[in-house]
Every structure is written in C-alpha cells, then in structure tokens.
Design a protein around this nucleic acid. Structure first.
Length: 515
RNA sequence: GGCGCCGUCGCCAAGAGGCUAAGGCAGCGGAUUGCAAAUCCGCCAUCGUGGGUUCGACUCCCACCGGCGCCUCCA
C-alpha cells in the first residue's frame, strides 16, 4: 500500500512521489486578513495540518507554508470603514487568525509569509515576467498577458477563447479582458510601495507565486486551498509561476470542499447569491441570510464548542466533500467524541496511568507490532492496517475515524470480557490494553487528535469546594446503598441529575461528571 | 450558457464491478446493574429515477430528476 493523492490538475488520484525523495514542500493559501476568521477559514488549515502530520509519520520531512494576505482592496476598504490604518487592521486580524489556529491545534506550519513583508520578491517576480514578455505595463499597472500562455486554463479546465472576462473597471487598460493584474497603481491615499512602475501594490495572485517560490522553490510538491480558489486564483498562479520559471509550480494541486451553511443559500462567508440583481428582493434576502448567519466569528463559536470537537467535526468527513455546518451537527459529533474520553478515563482507572501519557510511535514502521495469537491484538492490528489504508487513499480521514471508533470498542470489549475493573489485572492483560491504547494514540496523533486532555470543568477544573461537597454526597449515598436504602440513594442521584451531575456506580466506587 | 461536484439506513457519513455496503448520532431488544449510568452483544439500508455495457453494477456509460460550487473578491 502506498500513498495516493487526488490531483486537481489531472482529476485523478496519483501515486504520491515528492520531487525530492523524502522531502515535501507544501503551500496552502491562507486568509485575507480583513475580518475575523469564521469556521470556513479553519477547514484548510486543519486538513493540511493533518496531512502534514500523516506525511511526517510516513517518513517525509515536510515544510508547510501558509501565507497571509495583508494588502488588498478589501483591507483598504475595511480599514477606511473602521478608521484605522491598514497595517493595524491586518495586525489585529492576523492575531485573530493565529489564535484560532492555535485553538484548533494547528501548530505544524513552518512559515507564515505576509505579502507586505515580501515586496522585494514580488516585484522581482513581476519584473521577470515583464522581461520575458509575459506581462506588460499599462499606465502604472502591470498585467499578465493571458494570450501568451498556451497552457492557461489547464487547472480549471477552461477554454481561453470562450472566456468572457469582465475586465472590471480596468478594461481599457488591458489588452484583453481576461488579463489580470500583477501590480496595481496606487490611488491617492492608498497604501503603496515603490516599484519600477511607480507607487502601487501587488495584485491578488502574485504574492502566492512569489512567496511559494521564495520559500519552497520553483517546483514544490503540494499546493492546497479551497475549491473556490481553483479559478481564478490558482489558475493565475500557475500561469505566473510556470511562465516565469518554465517549470511546473506544484506537482499536486489539492483542493478542499467548502463549508456550507445548512439549509441556507450559498456558502459561509462568501457572497450567497450570485445573480442578485438590483431589485431582486428575494435574492438579496437570501444573500443577507447566508452572510449574517454563516459568517459568525470563529472565536465566538469556540465559546460554545470545545476546539477538539470542531477539529473532529472537520476531520470526520473526506476533505474534498463540502461540509454542511450546523451547531446541531457539532453537538452530535461531540456525543461521539465522548466515547473516546470515557475510554481514556477507563484506561486510567485500570492502569493507573493517564492515556495522554502513553508513549506512542511517531513513525509508521515503528508502530508495527506482532499481535501473536491474542485475538484482541489481532483485531487491533487489523484496525490499524485499515486506518492506514484509508489515510493512504487520498487522506480519507472519514474512513480513518471510523476505525478509531472500532479501536475503542475493541478495547472496551476486552476490558469487559476480562473484567479488568472488577479485579486486579495481570501484567499480560495490562499489556494488551496498553497496546490498544498505544495504537489508538499513534493513529489519532496523525490526525492531531487526543494530544492532550481537553480543557473544561470535567478535566479537573472544578473548584475545591464542589469537589469536597461531591465527595461528601457520594459517601452519604454509598452508606444509604449499603443499608439498602435505595430510595435515598436514588433521590440523591436524581436531584444531582437535575443539576447536571451524572453519577456512575462502578466496582471501584462512584464517579461523577458534569453533563 | 461554459467548467465541475453531489444524490448510500430516520440524520451524518465511508466504500465498492462479484465478498456480511464501514463508522457516528438517534431508535429497538438483550447482557450487566438494587435500579440507573457507562460498557458489551444483537436488530435496523440494496445504494435518486430510467435506460445501456457486462456472465454480473450500488460501483462503468448515457439520459432525466433533485441539490450545490466556480465562471467577479472569497479558505
């Protein structure tokens, strides 16, 4: 079994073979930082974070780059609206983005280039395109001459001849309506940089060509982004980079599906209806709905859902599929996640050690183990194999997560059958349970899951007072149960239940958790 | 109009030319429990519709119906 990756360029799954053996360069298009990020902004980073983890686990040395677009028309407009400078706005929104990434456990990114800090690379890149006659200056602007690129349209499968292109407001400055800006001359009062063509700022696409080249080289391995970027952004990037260097920019183009608001028109954060004509009341309503409902800030979502739940939600479906977003979905997913957390507690009760402290192999080959003829271990080995096969098949995290659930069931069944909580387990029994936990940790780690106990009241954040009180109540109830005063015992449990406290009577004593 | 994607159990969601069509949520039955909770076991789908290719299709092809994306800034 070997890794296969779906390539938008070829529209097929291809065997994964990096340009340089053993090394992978990966570039993901990041956000334009003009507004707080919403959940849609987290899809790509979480997925590509998992992809990097899995590649590293598979033995590759991965360099992961995510850019931040901090100069752009939208930034200019928003900063004017708020009466702050563009850099101040970018700073604020970049910080928001970073915090959200951190919450999601996305910490594998090696470089965060920002457009404004790479102006030299960008200008050099444009100069080269002009020198090679793939671009032309026009009244302080510089445009890419699409006609010069015979391969234009190969990514998004478009035919140049039949493309309309509106030309925007710049139509008369361009040779062709489908040409796109590499450099835009500055209007008075706009943020600008000096260039051979006068003061101005880069067009949207050029920064990614310039920065990916500067960090990863002329041809790197994986270029990722949302499906909505295929055209025009990635198509234009390819045009710029490949005309500039005469080589493929990236070997594999990977695009993730977009987050969509359930039962709503359009996708989150984007314009909801395309054909909204002035006066078309209904379309405008729908557009507004999609925007206001879907695009709520991610940081706000984090106040209602645990970060790991959101991460789990994003990974429980295949990355190329669109995901319907709804709070109900997330809650449902959380219910499933709790199955893991309960097992972790059970593991700790039995072994006396935290699941999160279990040592696990960080390399694929090191995770192989000999199950012998122990049925549970045979099962664990089989599930591990299935997990790996799923991930090898274009990073099928949805299928892989299913195997994780089965792994937990297998371990629980073993603990049940062997009555590990009722009596002192033997070393052999502990070894089996440990192997199951080790494999679970090993595999989950490739998805960036279960790296640390989730924060929250159930994780030990309770006040000392509550702890003492619960200890007392549980003791009183235990006494009642001993004397078969079940009326009292049940009443205690019921009243606590109404208050959101769940009691679980186990062989080793009663445990309580907050629901 | 052009380029694409999707339609699998009540809901979400993997998969696959012939093997029992994963898993989660919800539901039902059982084991366990003083009763519960948790856990385990079992039950719960013939894959949008109609054609075609094939010895055989849910899986390939065509048409249709339904949902969606891009074609203009968007992860």
């Amino acid at each position: 079994m070997s890794l296969r990756v779906y390539n938008t360029l070829s529209k097929t799954k291809e065997p994964f073979e990096p340009v340089k053996p053993g090394q992978v360069g990966m570039y993901l298009c990041g956000p334009t930082v003009y507004k707080p990020s919403h959940i849609g902004h987290m899809v790509g980073p979480v997925i590509f974070d998992a992809i990097k983890r899995y590649l590293a686990y598979s033995g590759y040395q991965v360099t992961f780059v995510v850019n931040v677009t901090d100069v752009d028309d939208k930034l200019i407009a928003e900063s004017k609206k708020r009466g702050i400078s563009m850099p101040a706005l970018a700073e604020e929104m970049t910080a928001d983005y970073m915090h959200n990434l951190e919450a999601m456990g996305v910490d594998t990114i090696d470089h965060f280039p920002r457009a404004t800090q790479c102006m030299g690379d960008i200008i050099k890149f444009i100069e080269k395109l002009v020198a090679k006659d793939f671009a032309y200056e026009s009244d302080g602007d510089v445009y890419f001459d699409v006609e010069k690129d015979r391969e234009y349209g190969k990514l998004s499968n478009r035919d140049v001849a039949s493309m309309q292109g509106e030309g925007g407001g710049m139509a008369e400055r361009k040779r062709s309506a489908i040409d796109f800006a590499l450099w835009k001359s500055a209007k008075p009062g706009e943020p600008s940089w000096d260039s051979p063509w006068g003061k101005g700022r880069p067009g949207w696409h050029i920064e990614c060509s310039a920065m990916s080249h500067a960090i990863l080289g002329e041809t790197f391995d994986i270029h990722g982004g949302g499906l909505d970027l295929v055209f025009p952004h990635h198509e234009n990037e390819i045009a710029q980079s490949e005309c500039c260097h005469g080589k493929p920019q990236a070997k594999y183009w990977m695009h993730n599906g977009l987050m969509q608001a359930s039962n709503e028109v359009g996708k989150i954060g984007g314009r909801a209806t395309r054909e909204a004509q002035p006066g078309d009341q209904q379309a405008q309503e729908a557009g507004k709905m999609g925007k206001s409902k879907g695009a709520s800030a991610f940081s706000e979502l984090l106040t209602r859902h645990a970060p790991e739940t959101i991460r789990f939600f994003l990974l429980s479906t295949h990355y190329r599929r669109p995901i319907d977003f709804s709070e109900g979905r997330i809650e449902e997913v959380h219910t499933g996640l709790e199955q893991f957390y309960r097992f972790f507690k059970r593991y700790e009760r039995i072994t006396g050690a935290s699941f999160y402290e279990v040592d696990y192999p960080t390399h694929r080959a090191a995770g192989d183990f000999d199950p012998g003829d122990e049925p549970t271990l045979v099962q664990v080995a089989e599930l591990r194999k299935r997990f790996l096969e799923s991930m090898d098949d274009d990073f099928n995290t949805g299928g892989a997560v299913a195997d994780l659930f089965e792994l937990v069931r297998t371990a629980n069944k073993y603990a049940d059958d062997q009555k590990l909580e009722a009596k002192k387990p033997t070393d052999a029994q502990l070894a089996v349970l440990r192997q199951a936990a080790t494999t679970l940790r090993e595999l989950a780690a490739t998805l960036g899951l279960f790296r640390a106990a989730p924060a929250g009241p159930q994780a030990g954040g309770d006040s000392e007072l509550v702890g003492k009180l619960m200890e007392l109540v549980i003791e009183l109830r235990a006494n009642a149960r001993k004397t078969k005063d079940f009326a009292t015992a049940d009443r205690i449990r019921d009243v606590l239940g109404e208050a959101g406290v769940v009691l679980e009577d186990r062989p080793g004593g009663t445990e309580w958790t907050l629901k």
